[in-house]
């Protein structure tokens, strides 16, 4: 398969880095959303968000499994599995973007974070369906159906909150202020992404940006907050956070991993 050969011939690990990046994004957001389980504002939405968690964790599993296969081929003795990748890597080895590790905050925070990410993931998978790497293309083809729903669900909620009561609008705008600086990293390509895109395995994120902006515009327009948002993001006052994709995370990821990885670290190889 293209990509694997390339990696072996150059000795570079860009493909596994790229897979881990995609998987970590899905796992960490899936975990964040799962924190709502049992705490949702209403039973139906509790289940909806939990379903989205399971979708994301499922995507992460497929990507981890593929990454583990590749790692085992080059170093059979390491005995890597989807579980070791999820449960036994440290903070600095995680390559998820900062957005997905942000705290849940209130419902508006969680919704807007999901909307930002699902919009990005939708256009990303739309490209990756055409990846020259068959496995990535197949995983993306399955995932995009799920993400289409995540995008519709979160978009509907952004509209509801923006167009709802004064309080819901205020909370949504507050969430925007907090989360916006973490959206730039979604499109800021790091080395493994550039290599993957050049080889036709990954997506050129620069090409996704305008679609992402366009989708946001449509939804914010319908939510009645577009003019407020446009005032907030005037050119020049648009500094963005980054670093997650190369392992430099916020303090939040450590707490997530402490909980996520506790069982495997306290009771190695335990199963259920």
């Amino acid at each position: 398969m293209i990509g694997e050969e390339e990696m072996n011939s150059t000795g570079k690990t860009f493909l596994t880095d790229y897979l881990l990046h995609l998987a970590d994004d899905a796992l960490i957001l899936g975990h964040r959303n799962s924190e709502w389980c049992g705490h949702g504002p209403i039973l139906e939405q509790d289940i909806a968000l939990t379903n989205i968690s399971l979708d994301l964790i499922g995507q992460a599993r497929s990507l981890y499994q593929y990454a583990a296969n590749i790692l085992n081929e080059s170093h059979p003795a390491r005995n890597v599995s989807e579980d070791t990748l999820a449960y036994l890597r440290d903070n600095r080895e995680f390559k998820n973007c900062l957005l997905v590790e942000m705290p849940n905050g209130d419902w508006a925070h969680t919704i807007l974070r999901q909307f930002f990410f699902s919009t990005y993931q939708f256009f990303l998978y739309e490209k990756l369906v055409g990846s020259v790497n068959d496995t990535i293309a197949a995983i993306s083809a399955k995932a995009i159906k799920e993400v289409t729903y995540h995008l519709r669900w979160s978009g509907e909620w952004v509209i509801r909150l923006g167009d709802g009561t004064d309080e819901s609008k205020e909370r949504l705008l507050k969430a925007f202020d907090m989360l916006w600086p973490f959206t730039g990293e979604l499109f800021h390509m790091v080395e493994y992404e550039i290599v993957a895109a050049d080889l036709g395995i990954g997506a050129d994120l620069n090409l996704l940006r305008s679609k992402w902006d366009e989708k946001l515009k449509i939804v914010f327009q319908e939510a009645g907050i577009l003019s407020i948002i446009e005032n907030k993001i005037k050119p020049g006052s648009n500094w963005m956070q980054s670093g997650g994709k190369i392992g430099k995370h916020s303090e939040h990821l450590g707490f997530i991993l402490a909980e996520l990885q506790f069982m495997q670290r306290a009771y190695p190889n335990s199963e259920w």
Binding site: I42, L43, I47, A48, N51, W153, E156, R160
Partner: peptide, 20 residues
């Protein structure tokens, strides 16, 4: 049965609650 704010949300909730 389930709770929802409008028909659109009711269908989405039904999808999540009853067609998993």
């Amino acid at each position: 049965s389930l709770h929802a704010a409008d028909a659109q949300m009711a269908i989405e909730n039904a999808r999540d609650v009853y067609t998993r």
